[in-house]
Amino acid sequence: MNRGVMLKAVYESWPATLMCGLLLAGVEAIVAYVIPTFQAQFSESLMQIEFIQTFVSAMLGIDAAEQLGPEAFAAFPWVHPVVLAVVWTHALVSCTRVPAGEVDRGTIDLTLTLPVTRWGILASETIVWIGTGVVVLLAGLAGNEIGSQFVVEEFRVPLERKLIILANLFCLYLAVGGLAWLVSASSNRRGPAIIIVFVVLLASFLLNFLSQFWSVAERISFLGILDYYRPVYVLRDGSVPWYDMSILLAVGVVLWIIAGAIFARRDVCTV
């Protein structure tokens, strides 16, 4: 770990962090207010459409036709596709910057010829990534709190439960980041690296969706990372999803270690 590399990473990361943080706060505030406030209208109109039902079931991990209660509506802000997209975007942007991004734009030459080991660079970048990730998620929580102030009591969620969801979302963020580090460590181009991770995430999302009505997909749904992120259960009984969080954390850590091993051993060629 090196303070200078961390300082450089902060300089590089703050615009994306600010943008994602504000966006997440805004989306959380809006969804946290709109969905519970207009839940009756949603239930009567949109939720009658079968595709929407399936989609909502996939997002929440429950049978939307039968189990759509106050918790489910309160869980929406945490599983909304835009929310997940913003969180994932931050992970993707942060974790593909080094080495893929730097090789891509040719700046890696100077970075790697500074007196820091490649593991040191990765560790420093990772600390900044985790720190900025916490900032983004806390901004989302703040937005959610603001939006929740204007909904009826029944749909308000205690802060402790939101923090548990946030912890689960953070583990999901780490797993996505771990994958992004891995792809970035093996790549010379940032664009393709982002696309690969995005495709994997999309496949995971699709698997989660298909598992609602296709038994084959259901059998392998444990392979998708969204299978380990179910805020509605946390909201329902307040339990900490230790198992899900451990799986996500383990995925993130293992992928990160493999990424580090690849980065430490690989040749870097920008010309």
């Binding site: 200078g4 300082l7 300089y11 590089e12 700046t107 100077l110 820091v116 920008t270 010309v271």
Partner: peptide
């Protein structure tokens, strides 16, 4: 070390670069 084709982060200025390099 000076690479053949010097490329740096576009947001960097000389003072910031010296600060970062100095910290490292």
């Amino acid at each position: 070390y000076l690479p053949g084709d010097v490329r740096m982060q576009p947001w960097l200025d000389g003072r910031t670069a010296l600060r970062i390099w100095g910290t490292i």
